[in-house]
């Protein structure tokens, strides 16, 4: 077993020979066992990144390693739920699950799949074409969880669900991750949705990885400060700053001790994400364990040994 679920090295994907780059020069590492939020605005490349990891698209450049091997090789061990939750409309719910069992011999866990479906009080004999969007999501999640994946990739999984179903399914996912050590990467553009359940962040903006790392590490690497308007932010990296009258508020990455007369606080995940999204020019940050370069693996080994 590898301790890395996903590793991207200079990963790029362009659609068409002269098309737009959906992803460019992405480098990051997702340690195994994490629940990772893939966050970014619409069209940032989240879906492309997840499809690349699921082995559904060939990268245009760079390399992506999934569970220690190529995405195609890892496919039997990876679960994927696409944003539009494609299912065969002519099959019933029960048939869809039987198909999952037939296509994943030796891996399929019927009990898990049936539990996910049963939570929605779905009639097993109902045809998929008669289901609502949320019910389809449930069946799609049941297929992905039923194959007992080591890595679960979910593209906007909760968008169609009502708050109650969202809460319940998120609970199922988290319990599954905790029990089997499943790594989960799920995308969303609603940050608040992910804050409670995720411990790792991948912020994608404009086809690039802007932030990568443990959420707590990332938060503590930043400070939200309030100071006099003429304060010298000096050696620190400024992600975003705003001056209102005589007062300056900023989100910075401290590079040394902060001036004593500043009011400082650790930013929330949402503040962190929004500040980076509002300032596309701000330099990116990957914490040691989330950086793809080999020089950081020591830190990772230390952490996983601890």
């Amino acid at each position: 077993m590898t301790d890395t679920a996903l590793r991207a090295e200079a990963l790029g994907k362009r659609f068409g020979r002269r098309g737009r780059w959906a992803l460019r020069e992405c480098g990051f590492r997702l340690p195994a066992g994490r629940v990772c939020a893939v966050v970014g605005p619409n069209g940032a490349g989240k879906s492309t990144l997840l499809a690349l990891a699921a082995g559904l698209l060939p990268p245009t450049e760079g390399r992506l390693t999934v569970l220690g091997t190529s995405p195609a090789q890892a496919r039997p061990r990876v679960g994927f739920v696409a944003q539009d939750k494609p299912l065969h409309p002519q099959l019933t719910v029960a048939e869809t699950l039987r198909m999952g069992a037939d296509l994943n011999p030796g891996r399929w866990d019927a009990a898990v799949a049936e539990r996910v479906v049963a939570g929605g009080a779905l009639d097993p004999e109902a045809r998929v074409r008669t289901l609502s969007g949320g019910q389809r999501t449930r069946v799609a999640l049941a297929l992905a969880l039923g194959k007992r994946p080591e890595l679960l990739l979910l593209d906007e999984p909760m968008a169609d669900l009502d708050p109650l179903a969202r809460h319940e399914l998120m609970g199922t996912l988290m319990a599954d991750a905790a029990q089997h050590g499943t790594t989960i990467a799920m995308s969303s553009h609603v940050v608040a949705e992910l804050e409670d359940s995720c411990d790792h962040l991948l912020l994608v903006g404009d086809g690039r990885v802007r932030l990568a790392g443990d959420i707590d590490d990332l938060r503590s690497a930043h400070r939200r400060i309030t100071a006099e308007a003429d304060a010298d932010l000096g050696p620190h990296t400024v992600v975003e700053s705003r001056t209102t009258g005589r007062q300056l508020t900023a989100l910075i990455r401290p590079a040394g001790p902060l001036a004593g007369d500043w009011r400082t606080s650790v930013p929330s995940l949402e503040e962190l994400v929004l500040a980076h999204l509002r300032s596309p020019g701000a330099p990116g940050l990957a914490t040691a364990e989330a950086a793809e370069s080999t020089g950081t693996t020591e830190a990772v080994t230390e952490e996983s040994a601890a």
């Binding site: 699921a54 496919r75 494609p86 065969h88 297929l143 194959k147």
Partner: peptide, 14 residues
């Protein structure tokens, strides 16, 4: 077109 091919490919079928 509907994406069910992708569903099959992520369900243990190459």
């Amino acid at each position: 077109e509907s994406g069910t091919a992708r569903l099959a490919w992520t369900q243990g079928t190459s």
